[in-house]
Design a protein around this nucleic acid. Structure first.
Lengths: 345, 345
DNA sequence: TTGAAAGCGCTAACAT
DNA sequence: ATGTTAGCGCTTTCAA
C-alpha cells in the first residue's frame, strides 16, 4: 500500500470508539456496551452515545473487535465443486440465496471458498482452520472428502445434505431433504397414473441425494409389486440425462415412465425421448426432482418433486447461527418435499 | 459462545507468534519478518524460525494482523443481482471462477456480497465502507446504482464491464469486453454468408453490454449498406429470447438472420424459430454472443461471439491486486472477442 | 540483522 | 450503571 491515494482512501478519517466516547462524554467501555446492545446502559447515556455515533458516522473496526472478542463474525461458505457445476445448478442458487437471506439479518458476513472437489487447497485448509471464520457452511452434492468430513471436529460446521454413509460423524450437523420419501411420492404418482414399467435415471452413486432417491424409487416399485430393474446412472447434467434416457429406451423398449433424479437430467431425457419419437406423457411419463427452472423451460412442463432449496439455505444458516450463539440446534433437520404436477406425468 | 464445546473448538490451542518466537529463540519482530517475507532476516535465523512455525503448526491470526497492519486482506465480491440471475448466467460463473483462480495465488480472500440490484442494503454499505475489506470487485450486468457508482471514491474498486454512460467516473477502474467490435464481427459474418435482412435481439437498454452490442450490429449493417430496422429488445433470459424472436419473425417475415445479444436468448430464439417451422440456418441464420454452454446445448450448435469471461475475472482480480499493491494498473482494460463458428450461421 | 517497545481499536473482567 | 485496566496477537518504528 505504498500508493498515496490508495492509502489515503483506506485510512480515511474513520473515527474510533475512543472519539465517540470523547464526544459523548463517556468511557470507551460504555460506548462498547452501546454498540453491543448491552442492557446495562441508562436510557439517557444511550441516546447521547447514539447521537455521537450518528454524528461521527462511526463504524466499529471489525479486526479490532475480532481480536478482542475472539470471534470473527464471519462464516465460510465452502463449495467443493468447480464453479460451473456450482453456478450451473439452480439448486445451489437457491441454497445460497437462502443463506444470504438469513445472514442478512445477522452480523455475520459470508466468505466464499470455492475449492477443488477432490481436495481443498492448502489455502482453504489454512483459512478454515486458521481462525478466520467462526463457522462454516458446506454445500455440495459430493461428500467423502476427508478434510471436510472431519472439519466438524475443529470448527462449528453445518452441512447441506446428508453426509455419505449411513451415519455421519456423530456430532455433525446437517440439513437434509426427504429425498427418499420424495422419490417414493414421485414414483407413486407414476403408479397411480397406471404406469407399470417405471425406469429411473439416477445420479452418481457417491452422492447421498442420488442414493436416497434411488431407494425411494425402489420403495415405491416394491410397494406396488413392480420390478425395479430399469436403471441407468446419470451425472446430474443435461447431457448425462440424454445419454441415460437413450440407453434406457433402447434397452427397455417396454418402458412407460421414467423417474429422473434431477430436473436438469429430466430435461435431457425429454430431449432424448423426443429424439426417439416418443410422446410425453402418452408414451412415456416423466417425473423429475428439484422443481428448478429447468422444470418449466422446455416445451412441456415437467412434473417434479419439489425440494425446498432456498429453505435449505435458510435453515443451514440458522442452524450455524444458533450453534455460534451457544444454543443446541438439532443435529439433523430434514426438509420435506412436495409433488408439483405439470404435463409430463 | 457460551457453549462449552463450541468455545473449546474455537479457542483450541492455536499457537501465537510469541510462542513461535520463544521456540525459535528469537524476538517476535523477527518472527513477524519471517512471516511477511522480509529480506532483513539472516538465512540461519530464517530456517530456525521456519522450523518452529512448522513444528507448532502456526497460522497467523488474521484479525491481529489486520489490526496492526491496517489492512484486512480480504476483498468483497459485490453482486448487485438477485441470486438466480447471478447463478443462472454462465457468464458470471466464468467470471467468478477467474476471480477465484487469481485470488488463489494471493493472500486475499473473497467476501461475497449478494445485494439487491436497485439499492444495496444498509448492511452492505456499512460493510464496504466500514473498512472490512481492502477493495471491492463489482460484477453485474447492471449499473447506474448511485452507491456503487460512487464506491470507487471511498475504496479501491474494479468493475466488471463498462459502467453505464459514455464515460465512467474518471478514476474508476473497469475491465470491459469489446462488445461493439465483437457484435460487428458477428454481424459481418452474417453479411458474408449472404444475409441481407439481419435483425437483432438486444438486451435491456440500461446495460452497457447490451447497448454496445446493438451499436456493433448497426455498425456492421451500415458498413454493408443494409438497413438496421429489425430490432427487438430482450432481457437476457431464454423466455425473453423466445418472445423477441417470435415478435421479430411475425413483424418481419423477410428476415433471414438474427444477431442475438446473448447465447441464452439465442437459445430461446432457436426454439421460437423451430416453433414457427423455420430452419436454421437455411431460412434464418443465428449468431449469438457469449459462447456459453447454451451455445452447444441445443440440437444445433450456435455460431457465436465468444467473450473471455474467465479472463475477465482474472483480469479484474489482478487489477485490484495491483491497485492494492500500490501499482498503477490501467483504468480501462478491454478484452477481445472471437467468432466461434458452429451450425447456426 | 535483530530486539524493545509502542501501539492498532476494541472487549471484558473487575472495581466502583 | 459506569469507569479503569488489561490485554487480544500482530506490525512497525526506533535503537542497537
Amino acid at each position: 500500500m505504498t500508493d498515496g491515494a490508495v492509502a489515503e482512501l483506506a485510512g480515511a478519517a474513520r473515527p474510533t470508539l475512543e472519539e465517540v466516547a470523547r464526544v459523548a462524554g463517556v468511557s470507551r467501555a460504555t460506548v462498547s456496551r452501546v454498540i453491543n446492545g448491552s442492557p446495562r446502559v441508562s436510557p439517557d447515556v444511550l441516546s447521547v452515545v447514539e447521537r455521537a455515533i450518528a454524528e461521527l458516522n462511526y463504524v466499529p473496526n471489525r479486526a479490532a473487535r475480532s481480536l478482542a472478542a475472539r470471534s470473527t463474525m464471519s462464516i465460510a461458505l465452502v463449495v467443493p465443486e468447480d464453479a460451473h457445476r456450482f453456478f450451473g445448478d439452480p439448486y445451489f442458487a437457491d441454497v445460497v440465496q437462502g443463506i444470504s437471506e438469513r445472514l442478512d439479518d445477522s452480523d455475520y458476513v459470508l466468505n466464499l471458498q470455492l475449492t477443488h472437489p477432490s481436495s481443498p487447497s492448502e489455502k482453504t485448509r489454512r483459512y478454515l482452520l486458521g481462525g478466520n471464520v467462526d463457522g462454516a457452511l458446506v454445500v455440495s452434492h459430493h461428500s467423502g472428502d476427508h478434510f471436510l468430513a472431519s472439519l466438524g471436529r475443529s470448527l462449528p460446521v453445518v452441512f447441506g445434505g446428508r453426509p455419505l454413509g449411513e451415519v455421519a460423524n456423530p456430532g455433525d450437523y446437517y440439513i437434509d431433504v426427504g429425498n427418499r420419501a420424495g422419490a417414493l411420492r414421485g414414483v407413486e404418482h407414476l403408479v397411480t397414473r397406471g404406469r407399470r414399467h417405471i425406469a429411473t435415471i439416477t445420479g452418481p452413486d457417491d452422492m447421498p441425494a442420488s442414493v436416497d432417491r434411488e431407494r425411494g424409487w425402489r420403495d415405491a416399485l416394491e410397494a406396488a409389486g413392480l420390478e425395479a430393474t430399469r436403471l441407468e446412472r446419470g451425472d446430474f447434467t443435461e447431457a448425462g440425462g440424454i445419454r441415460a434416457a437413450l440407453a434406457l429406451v433402447d434397452r427397455h423398449p417396454d418402458l412407460d415412465a421414467i423417474f429422473v433424479a434431477s430436473d436438469l437430467m429430466a430435461s435431457g431425457a425429454l430431449l432424448a425421448l423426443e429424439e426417439r419419437g416418443l410422446r410425453v406423457p402418452e408414451d412415456v411419463a416423466v417425473v423429475g426432482f428439484d422443481d428448478s427452472r429447468y422444470a418449466t423451460r422446455g416445451r412441456i412442463g415437467l412434473t417434479t418433486v419439489a425440494q425446498p432449496a432456498q429453505e435449505m439455505g435458510i435453515v443451514m444458516a440458522d442452524t450455524l447461527l444458533r450453534l455460534l450463539a451457544g444454543e443446541r440446534p438439532p443435529h439433523v433437520t430434514t426438509l420435506g418435499t412436495r409433488l408439483v404436477e405439470r404435463d409430463s406425468a
